[in-house]
Write a protein that binds this DNA or RNA. Structure first.
Lengths: 188, 188
DNA sequence: TTGTCCTTTCGGTAAAAACGGAAATATGAG
DNA sequence: CTCATATTTCCGTTTTTACCGAAAGGACAA
């Protein structure tokens, strides 16, 4: 009897399918997310052919998906002795995984947007026939995204245990913020 | 001479176009993001017909887009005296805007995923023919998303100035986390 | 109530994205 | 070097999604 494949477990199949759906909601190719989900569940690194058969996808498709996942840094290549084929395994630490996804999407989509807004802000500053509120709103968006991006660049460097501790605190971190006139400061 | 429309400002047009592109990268319909960008730049609330002409979109398309933006809570209807038509304006507070977008996407995509993972975890617990690592990894993902979701539900209730202050602190919030054995604690 | 104006829904079409298969390229063993 | 095997690129097909126009569905004034 052949070793039971992951895909034969209904719950695993459901997981992979759902992950694919969710990915596509976030602008990620369905095949890419499915391959990711499969590798996340796989105990051993898998080679491309194996992934194809398991998910019923074309080889080319899997190849592209793997490249994409590697560019995110959440899947890596390994080699098994006596086997020429590339094998692939997923990042198993979910914190690291999330951080890598966020950093990559920031790099791809947010940073260029900030750059564009920066340019537009400059161009608008050099004009005098533009309604003030337009200049102001684009400028504000620029500043906002810049702040957000800077914040992420900052906190992602924190050691993981610190990050976990911060998250577990939730809203309680607010205790440490100097109170001006808002509620939610020190309660007693 | 007619009042110069926003769309005649090249920088505004670039902003709207870019916003549309970025939206589509995140799984948001391009028309939806464009309408949002336009309303964000508009000083006055606009009615649907006006939006159509400005962006060159069909009436039906704009109607759908407005509905979507309202469901996110980042665009609202208003009425002008002496005008039966609905008028629309965008949320101008970018913090509020972001919070609303995130809460809505969480509701639509993350929460159902957590639910699914919860179900799968239960089902897996009732089986004894499933590799341990599969059970464990799905369970871990469930827990991870739950923690993340809980954290967001928590911090989003903080007063806005507190949130802004926290963000401005960036990684410095880590000062307040009890140090175990990691770097990044109190530096001096 | 009736007509006008405004909005939404619906069905078909057009555009875009995903996908598969074949061909091309690369890698490594002998 | 040559062959066998693994991987990627390219291009045509399929599937999905976005979009428009027409028709239906309200709301309000007269």
């Amino acid at each position: 009897m052949a070793k039971a494949a992951i895909i034969d477990i209904p719950e695993a199949r459901a997981f992979i399918l759902h992950w694919g759906e969710m990915g596509s909601q976030w602008g990620v190719n369905r095949s890419v997310s499915q391959v990711h989900a499969l590798l996340y569940l796989s105990k051993e690194p898998m080679h491309a052919e194996d992934i194809c058969e398991t998910l019923g996808l074309a080889r080319s498709n899997v190849s592209t998906a793997l490249k994409e996942l590697q560019s995110y840094g959440i899947v890596s290549r390994t080699h098994l002795i006596g086997d020429r084929r590339d094998h692939f395994e997923a990042e198993l630490d979910l914190w690291d995984m999330l951080m890598k996804i966020v950093i990559e999407r920031k790099k791809r989509e947010i940073d260029p947007t900030i750059q564009t807004l920066s340019d537009l802000t400059d161009q608008l500053a050099a004009r005098d026939d533009v309604p003030e509120h337009v200049r102001e709103r684009i400028g504000r968006m620029h500043q906002f995204l810049g702040t957000l991006g800077g914040w992420y660049d900052d906190v992602r460097r924190l050691p993981r245990p610190t990050l976990v501790a911060l998250m577990k605190m939730g809203g309680k971190v607010a205790r440490f913020i100097p109170v001006r006139s808002q509620s939610g400061g020190t309660k007693h």
